[in-house]
């Protein structure tokens, strides 16, 4: 027997909608509309100052077929994700494991490792600019005083991306906190049982601690991957895409197209490609997670 939609239910629905209307208006105006608009503009030639002109899929074709810089940008960004995300994740997990051990001054160390998260990006960039400076930097000053050739951290095409990744690894405070929470949930009974079975510390870490923490690892990996694909601030502040486009990442190039070249339609197409890439990587990671993520509550 089908249920009838009563007038009372309609009134209740309307009241509910009325109460969440501030959020609905905000969502529609600041999320839904821009998404729809950017989808439309990606099919147009649009410079913001003149009316958009519909050109079909031309922007997408140009990005993949003609735009040499876009290919470089894709390569740079994928490098950043493929190298930077695992590097950050491993560093955060190992540091969290160390900070989870009983030791003196543990709260102090935890605070120190979380501090980089609290430092504004611009301040971080300035600090690292001086650390990496080839003439006055902390590292290169010492190297020069030994009579050696300096290390061109951010002025070399080969070292610029790894140097930016090193800063990313340094600022893993949020991931460390997540991993710390996960590590504190590792049942001591399992660790004891493994120890009784003769597992050494490394085996206990690899076969007990890591599997128990895989849901947290999945979360950090996903959010890290999404953030890394959108990497902008430090690249913009420290290298401006150079040298020779070696740190020209997706978001930098998107920004340039939108605001420096007045190609908002083209930039919109880039934004949608970025969305699809992130979606594909997310689905890939989710699909693979069935093989390596262990949820304690599951029956098998």
């Amino acid at each position: 027997m089908s249920q009838q939609w009563t007038p009372a239910q309609t009134r209740s629905l309307l009241k509910g909608l009325a109460f969440i209307s501030p959020w609905l208006v905000g969502f529609a105006g600041f999320v839904l509309y821009p998404i729809a608009a950017s989808a439309y503009y990606s099919l147009t030639r649009y410079d913001v100052l003149r009316p958009a002109r519909f050109i079909g899929l031309e922007n997408y074709v140009e990005l993949f077929v003609k735009d040499e810089t876009f290919r470089t940008v894709l390569g740079n960004t994928v490098y950043l994700v493929v190298v930077g995300v695992p590097a950050g994740l491993v560093a955060a997990f190992l540091l969290a494991s160390l900070l989870n051990r009983k030791m003196k001054l543990r709260p102090l160390f935890r605070t120190i490792f979380f501090l980089p998260v609290l430092v504004p990006a611009v301040a971080s960039a300035e600090v690292w600019r001086w650390v990496y400076n080839t003439n006055y930097g902390v590292i290169n000053s010492v190297i020069k005083s030994w009579g050696w050739a300096v290390i061109p951290f951010i002025s070399s095409m080969e070292l610029a991306k790894p140097s930016l990744i090193l800063i990313h690894v340094w600022a893993q405070g949020t991931a460390i906190v997540i991993f710390l929470a996960a590590l504190q949930d590792v049942p001591s009974s399992l660790m004891d049982a493994a120890e009784v079975d003769g597992a050494n510390a490394l085996q206990r870490f690899w076969h007990v601690t890591v599997p128990i923490c895989t849901p947290a690892i999945l979360f950090v990996m996903l959010t890290g991957m999404i953030g890394m694909f959108q990497y902008f601030t430090l690249g913009w502040l420290l290298t401006q895409g150079g040298p020779n486009e070696s740190t020209e990442f997706f978001s930098l190039y998107l920004y340039r197209n939108a605001f420096q070249f007045f190609k908002m339609g083209y930039a919109s197409a880039q934004a949608w490609i970025l969305f699809i890439i992130i979606l594909a990587f997310t689905l890939l990671i989710f699909r693979s997670s069935a093989r390596w993520v262990y949820y304690a509550g599951e029956s098998d």
Partner: peptide
């Protein structure tokens, strides 16, 4: 090229 880039980046 490397020295020039480092010089420019540094100063």
């Amino acid at each position: 090229i490397q020295q020039m880039e480092s010089f420019r980046s540094s100063f």
